[in-house]
Structure formats: C-alpha cells, structure tokens
Amino acid sequence: MFGALVIYVLTGGADFGGGIVALLARGPRREAIRELVFHALAPIWEANHVWLIVAIVLLFVAFPKVFAAVTTALHIPLTLMLIGIVLRGAAFVFAQYDEETSRARYWWQRVFMWSSLLTPVTFGVVVGAVASGRIRVEPQTGLVQVGFVEGWWALFPFLVGGFAATLFAYLASVYLLLETEDVGIREWLRKLALGLGVALGVGAWVTLWWAQHETLTVYDRLVHSPLAQPFHLVTGVAALLALLALWRRRYTLARISAATQAVAIMTGWGLAQYPALLVPDMTIANSAAPDTVLRPLLIALILGSVVLIPSFGYLYWVFKQHTLAVRQRAPQ
C-alpha cells in the first residue's frame, strides 16, 4: 500500500506538477512550455492513477477501520481532492481535442492548471492531518471523536499541502528537461527546477519547525525515530546532488536524484509514523482485517503485480521513445 503511494507520487504526482509548471509558465515561450506539458502527459497521465486506486483499495480491504475514520474526518479535503482529479482529467481531454483557436480551449487549459494545483494541496492536507494526531478514534469501535473540520483545519496540514505541491512541481520541472530539445525551454525549466528545489528545502524546514509548536508527536517521530533518520540523510544528499546536477546541466543525473529525494521523503515519513496508520490511535495491529481477508488479498496483490508492473513498463517504453532519444543526447 505504501509502495503504491510512493509510485503514485513519482508518476501521478509529477503529472499534477506538470499542470503547476504550466501555470507558472511566463515569457515568450509560455505557450510552447504549456504545449510541452500537454504532450508529455498525454500518453500516460490516466494510467498513473492506477497506483492511487491500488493504495485506496488496499486501505479499504486490509484496514477498514482506518479507511472509515479517514474518509469521515477528512471528508471535505478528500472531496476537494477528488473534484480536482476529475476536473483535471476532463479539462485535459477537452483542451487537447478542442480547436486551437477555440475560446473554450483557453478556459479548459485554465481549469486543468488550477485543478492541478488544488489536488496536490488537498493531498498534502490529508497526509498532514493523518500524521498530525488531530484525528482521534476509539480503536475498538473505530468511531471518530472529531468533527468534519477539526482534524485538518490547522496550519500544519496546510504547510504539508504546500510542501506536496512544491514537490510535485519540482519533479515535473526536472522530468520535463528530458522531454524537449528546445534550448530556451530547457533553460527556463532548469531555472524553475533550481528555484523549486530551494523552495522545497525551505518548506521542509518551516513545516518541521511548526510541527513542534502544533503537533509535537509528528516532530518527535520525524526527528528522533531511529528508523527515519537514515532517510533524512539520504534526502539531504539527494537534494544537494539534484541541485548540483541542475546547476551543471546534468539532466539525467538530476532526474535520478530528484526521484530518489522524493522516495526518501516519503519513506522517512512512513517510517517515522510506523506502526501507526492514523496517528496516534490506529496502528497496523489494532486495525487490520482478519487473516481470512488478508491472505487472499496478498495472493491477489502478488498475481496482479505480475501483470501490472510489466504492463506499466511496456507502456512507458512504447510512449516515451522520444524521451529516451533526448536523454541519450542530453548531458549525462
């Protein structure tokens, strides 16, 4: 489940980040940058949502009490997130197939870009609320002890939301460097990626600093957890390596380093929260479904992975041949 969520951040998250990059595009190459984003996303954006679906289904089947608590306490941000996903998908299709001179196409592009910002922010709000300890649950019954707003209406979840949006945009800007051979667009993306990389580091420190004032549980787990600390080190090294690679225009290395940084961030958070699924009341042990459910679920997951993972590899191989060609010609 956690692995599916990490893959979704690397793939689907970067897709949403592409919309943010399009929203940030300025200057004489603005339309060309936006067309690049649409072209890069077109073959694979819908398929990447599979990983989010896998994570949600696993949570629903394997940990039904946690699923019920999260969807109850975080009903509002989850609804906004789903609205953003639907609007973004619909707007992307309408903008792609409408006439280039159509006024409707102009507005569909705006819907696509703004919904691409809304979804990562609400995704981060959900993650921040889950980790914050603000959602209290009676473990035996699974009854939520807070209302629809108290669990997420605080500064910390919104700081995590801003951090998530910055991370997604950062990944997208780095990925897009190998999607084009236009020197001007590539230089604009490089500068954007450098700025977002610095903003990501600042955002991480601000979010961590505020956690000790609002959600001490999160702060203690992130700072003192022996499981999470090695991944904080990996995150820092990968971040510096990515920025250095961007500065020296080593775009393949930058892509690998940025993806490693994202994986380390997610893994550090997951290990810091372990074994809690919903801090502090719901853990893996006290919220898991019976073994009669978990065993067939595990079998289905293994069999499904045998089909799903090679299929995704083939999908990317078929539709990203241009990217591979650009990567071979780009500085290594």
Rank of each mutant, 00 (worst) to 15 (best):
W188H: 15
Q140P: 14
G18Y: 10
L241G: 08
F123S: 15
I284F: 15
V54A: 04
V318R: 07
I85L: 00
A68F: 11
L308R: 05
D281S: 00
L82E: 13
F319E: 08
R327I: 06
A131F: 09
E31Y: 10
L246I: 03
A254V: 07
L189Y: 05
F2R: 06
F163D: 02
L59W: 11
R30P: 08
F94Q: 14
P120E: 08
W209L: 15
Y8D: 10
I256R: 07
W317K: 14
G12P: 12
I302K: 10
E187S: 14
F112W: 09
A104T: 12
V111N: 01
G147K: 11
R249K: 12
T235I: 13
L178A: 12
A169N: 09
Q321D: 07
P275L: 11
P275A: 06
L176S: 02
A193E: 04
N286K: 09
S102C: 03
I33N: 03
G151S: 09
L159E: 14
A242R: 07
G17I: 10
I302F: 08
L246N: 04
R34W: 15
D182R: 05
G12L: 00
A47W: 07
H224P: 10
A4P: 02
V37A: 10
L171I: 03
V198I: 02
L208F: 12
F163N: 08
L5C: 03
D281F: 01
E150V: 06
V237A: 10
R186W: 10
E181K: 10
W45G: 05
R329S: 11
P64H: 08
P296A: 01
F92M: 04
V146T: 10
V326G: 05
A259C: 13
A47V: 03
W108V: 11
E35N: 15
T166D: 04
A40M: 00
A242D: 03
L118Q: 06
T71L: 15
G151N: 02
A131D: 03
V61R: 01
P226S: 02
E138K: 02
V223C: 07
P310I: 04
R248S: 11
A262E: 05
I135L: 01
L233K: 14
W152M: 06
L10M: 15
V111S: 02
W317C: 13
W205F: 09
W108Y: 11
G268W: 05
Y106S: 13
L200Q: 02
L58A: 01
Y8W: 12
L294R: 05
G27L: 05
W152D: 00
V70I: 06
A55V: 01
D182S: 04
R249N: 11
N48Y: 01
A262R: 02
L315W: 04
I33R: 06
L253R: 09
L74F: 02
L143A: 15
D15T: 13
L10C: 05
S305A: 09
F38H: 06
Y274F: 14
T72R: 06
